[in-house]
């Protein structure tokens, strides 16, 4: 089984987000970048499937050289090889076209990624890759098992879940409880250094959107404290003052 896992290089979830003075770019000073947490669920499940059934796990990232540290981390966790498409990820459409191109070349049985990235929150790349390759996409998947040439997945829906059995190849976007992320061990870190990380050029692709500027949400004006002995007063305020109940 050949599995492709798409990973995105994103600010750590504890990051306090700020922008450059012209509000056109993220202020990356002091920001630590990590593998997108949702992509890590996909990566871990891919490695579990490989360990149980054999096969290879390839990770792909669309990014510049600053992604390499996290690509090596994915190799240390257990991926076999990596592809980095050497380009700034302009938008979801641009990234999806890169991934679709190299996915087609690699003839994968499963293409996995997170349901969204925690930076741009698009929920787009999986659906676009699937459409470009004429594949089914299970979005968002919370469980994935492979039996021969078919996979059985659980998809989260509002107020429940669906059970879906579908033939490979397919695209799935992952969220918890898909798999428990792993911390790379020393042996993994050592072997990751010698695993192949292929840097490839981007294919010609247009983006569909232009990011003009960024802004931060308005700050709250301050908390109104209510005496716990008279907690019921809160309910009155929510009805008469805030008018939300």
């Amino acid at each position: 089984m050949r599995i492709l896992v798409c990973i995105s290089n994103v600010p750590d979830t504890t990051t306090k987000i700020t922008f450059t003075p012209d509000n056109k770019n993220l202020n990356t000073a002091g920001v630590q970048f990590v593998i997108n947490p949702y992509d890590e669920y996909a990566l871990t499940r891919a490695i579990e499937l490989k360990e149980a059934q054999g096969g290879t796990v390839t990770v792909i990232n669309v990014g510049e050289a600053d992604s390499d540290a996290n690509i090596r981390k994915a190799l240390a966790i257990g991926a076999d090889e990596a592809i980095r498409v050497d380009a700034k990820p302009a938008d979801a459409l641009f990234v999806a076209r890169q991934i679709a191109h190299y996915a087609q070349e690699g003839n994968y049985d499963l293409i996995l990624m997170g349901k969204e990235s925690v930076d741009y929150n698009g929920f787009q790349v999986h659906g676009m890759v699937a459409e470009l390759l004429s594949l089914p996409a299970i979005v968002p998947a919370i469980k994935l098992d492979v039996n021969g040439t078919a996979a059985t997945l659980e998809r989260e829906i509002e107020g429940g879940k669906e059970i879906i059995t579908v033939n490979l190849p397919l695209v799935a976007s992952c969220q918890q409880p898909m798999a428990e992320p792993r911390i790379p061990n020393m042996r993994g870190i050592m072997t990751a250094r010698t695993k192949p990380l292929k840097v490839v050029p981007p294919v010609n692709a247009e983006s569909g959107t232009v990011y003009e500027s960024y802004s931060l949400p308005e700050k709250k004006s301050g908390v109104k404290l209510i005496d716990p002995a008279n907690a019921g007063e809160l309910i009155r305020l929510l009805r008469n003052e805030a008018k939300v109940i």
């Binding site: 459409l93 999806a96 787009q124 659906g127 676009m128 699937a130 459409e131 979005v139 959107t209």
Partner: peptide, 24 residues
């Protein structure tokens, strides 16, 4: 809607109709 359904079809429509997609 920015729901599991809306975003999943939105991504496919962006390719199929050659459109620009903004979610959320």
């Amino acid at each position: 809607a920015n729901s599991n359904i809306g975003t999943a079809v939105g991504a496919r429509l962006a390719i199929r109709l050659n459109g620009s997609l903004a979610t959320n």
